[in-house]
Write a protein that binds this DNA or RNA. Structure first.
Lengths: 192, 192
DNA sequence: GGAGTAAAATACCGAATGGTATAAAAATGA
DNA sequence: TCATTTTTATACCATTCGGTATTTTACTCC
């Protein structure tokens, strides 16, 4: 279907740019799809945005969650997260989820609800991972798993956002190593 | 002049909300100023935004810079920065500078240039402060002053942004203490 | 091939945007 | 007091937005 192509076009347009700055008209033009067709398929701009976010979660965020569920050690997993946020080419232009969350007030109700869902799921994923590492004695003492999960999520978001704004991968990586080192028990030593 | 009042209204409106979501019409209505008057004074929306940002830098950001220039020790100064970002009531609804920087692509050329100026000035301020603390032997070993300055600036921005999005001051403070502890030599101990 | 139906394209709508021309009003000078 | 000039207010313009009504095309079934 043409509407399916439109969804792909919308996803990449929202992802590369700012979701609030991509108009329905532009998506129709880019995808070669008429506006009524698009509205028949998705109902509204909110519906299209939500569908794009759904696809994004399946396509890109799932990789992030997979890292957390691999069951690796703390250091190894944090390294993988740092790699993902600072070097994965797909994140070069930012993370659609974080972009949408940053401009949540501009979203329709359905998309906003999905953003909140993903936010909760991500926090839960971080918390489950950190809980396991804490039970393995790898987490820094006196750190609340809940707070550390929020911290980890925000630092990943910050890193991806910085990268999207033109910061070099090396610099983003350095900042992230600095920020995440504080989660480790031994206490992070200085980064090279 | 009435235009002066309009500038105040614009500043608070931009500051409390999203600068991109506050229209010139709304500002005129709120300030009781006619649109032609406002345009005679500021030339364009870009001019008004820039003037508001100027005033913001004088009024709010100067306090932040003052903390850096007080010449206190590393720990003391970081604590003051944490207080400012996580507890100052003026930052309750976010930082206009960081808001504008986050939506830089939506700004006119004059406002954007001012954002870049402030960005540079802030980085330089952080760097000068950290340089001094490094020479006093308080900074963690192996840390580039330049990178640490960027890190510090981003963490402050993240904290204020989080607070504006509804996070509790206590939680923001906890995350910030965690993030900034890594700058200290002794290596930060865990936060309660 | 022609009737009926499903899809698509064009053209349109009302609202809101930044910005301005014009008309009304107020203040100033003689 | 009258004329001039400056400031203010109303009304308007062109464009863009999300969303639809209408018309035209294409396809299916008999």
């Amino acid at each position: 279907m043409k509407a399916d192509k439109a969804l792909g076009v919308a996803l990449t347009a929202y992802w590369r740019g700012d979701p609030a700055d991509v108009s329905v008209n532009a998506i129709c033009q880019l995808a070669g799809v008429s506006k009524p067709s698009l509205y028949r398929e998705f109902g509204s701009e909110d519906g299209l945005k939500r569908a794009a976010l759904d696809r994004y979660a399946d396509e890109a965020l799932s990789d992030l969650f997979a890292i957390l569920r691999r069951g690796g050690g703390l250091e190894e997993t944090l390294d993988a997260l740092i790699d993902f946020a600072s070097a994965d080419p797909r994140m070069e232009s930012g993370c659609l989820f974080y972009k949408m969350r940053a401009g949540k007030h501009r979203l329709g109700p359905r998309t906003r609800a999905r953003v909140d869902e993903i936010d909760l799921a991500a926090r839960a994923g971080y918390a489950a991972f950190l809980q396991a590492r804490d039970e393995a004695g790898e987490l820094r003492d006196g750190l609340s798993v809940e707070a550390a999960a929020a911290y980890l999520g925000e630092q990943i978001g910050l890193a991806i956002t910085q990268r999207a704004s033109g910061e070099t991968p090396a610099r983003v990586r350095g900042m992230m190593e600095l920020a995440l080192s504080v989660l480790k028990r031994g206490d992070g030593r200085a980064i090279e």
